[in-house]
Amino acid sequence: MRLDRFLSESTDLSRSDARKVLKSGEITVNGEVITKGAYILNEDDVVMWDEEPLALVGLRYLMLNKPAGYECSLKNSLYPSVMTLLDIEKRERLHTVGRLDVDTTGLILITDDGHWTHRIISPKQECDKVYVATLAEPLPDHAERLFQEGVLLNGDDKPTLPAVLERIDERTARLTIQEGRYHQVKRMFASLGNLVLTLHRERIGPVALDADLALGESRYLTPAEVQALVSDEFYP
């Protein structure tokens, strides 16, 4: 890796600012002052800036308990971005794995590993997403069968994949889907003439939202959770 790129990825410096710092003689590699950004680093080189060691920020994997009123976007727009809830270095490199609506709460995955994200959201993965919805009206008796058969949503040209509906009470249900169509859960219940009042995501694949995370809180995934989300053991 070029030294100027290393500096921009391990600090808050832009690539052009990194070159200025290099020219000032503040950067050493293995104790030797290096002033050229094109200098190629070896894996075991020790880079220091004003005698402080620098290290690359590795790939990161987090879960966040998303509150209502936040967008799954990189920047603030009409609503604040979920990224503003994170106190983490190089936050601008992160992205959400899929999205939740502004008024939907619960589990959102965040990473800077694009390949990992693709493995999870790819339709071929058939990754379960589990939601709990509170509804304005009681569910009809045939709701489970309709969702299992697939629902043709308004504006779509093909029905949804089979989904599993579990009644918690007459106005609360747990729904497991394997797609991520626009407003899909709300539109599925709307096809029954019902309105979703609140929606909360509990689980993605084998990873459930940590019960110890309050709304707005996050934590890093464990290595086992990171692997489980893309493991063939869970997606045969």
Rank of each mutant, 00 (worst) to 15 (best):
E179G: 07
C127N: 02
G216S: 10
I121D: 03
N30V: 14
T105N: 04
P138E: 14
Q178M: 11
R60P: 09
E166Q: 11
N154I: 11
D12P: 06
Y220W: 11
I204Q: 06
F234P: 02
L59K: 15
L229F: 07
S8Q: 04
I120R: 09
Y61R: 07
F234A: 03
M1V: 11
M48L: 14
I204P: 00
M1G: 14
R99H: 12
A55P: 05
K36C: 00
P162W: 06
I120M: 08
I110F: 10
W49I: 09
R171E: 06
G205Y: 10
V97I: 11
D87M: 09
R174D: 00
Y235Q: 01
T172A: 15
P236D: 11
A68L: 04
I40L: 15
E71A: 12
D156K: 10
K124S: 14
K90A: 08
A133C: 09
D12I: 10
D210S: 12
P223E: 01
K124W: 07
W49C: 15
L161C: 13
V230T: 13
L135D: 03
L199C: 07
V21D: 03
N65C: 07
Q184Y: 09
T84A: 04
K124H: 14
L152S: 02
T172S: 13
I120D: 05
A38R: 13
K66R: 06
K36E: 13
S14A: 08
L7C: 05
E89Y: 08
R187E: 00
L56A: 09
L139V: 01
Q178R: 12
T104R: 10
E149P: 10
L78V: 11
L197W: 05
P80A: 09
A224S: 09
P123K: 01
N30C: 05
A18N: 03
D212M: 08
S122D: 15
A224P: 07
R119C: 04
T104K: 02
G31S: 01
Y131K: 10
T134R: 15
L85I: 02
C127R: 00
R171D: 06
L107T: 05
A208I: 05
E170C: 08
S73Y: 07
I177N: 00
A68M: 02
R201V: 00
G180K: 02
T222G: 02
S122N: 07
I40K: 14
D113V: 04
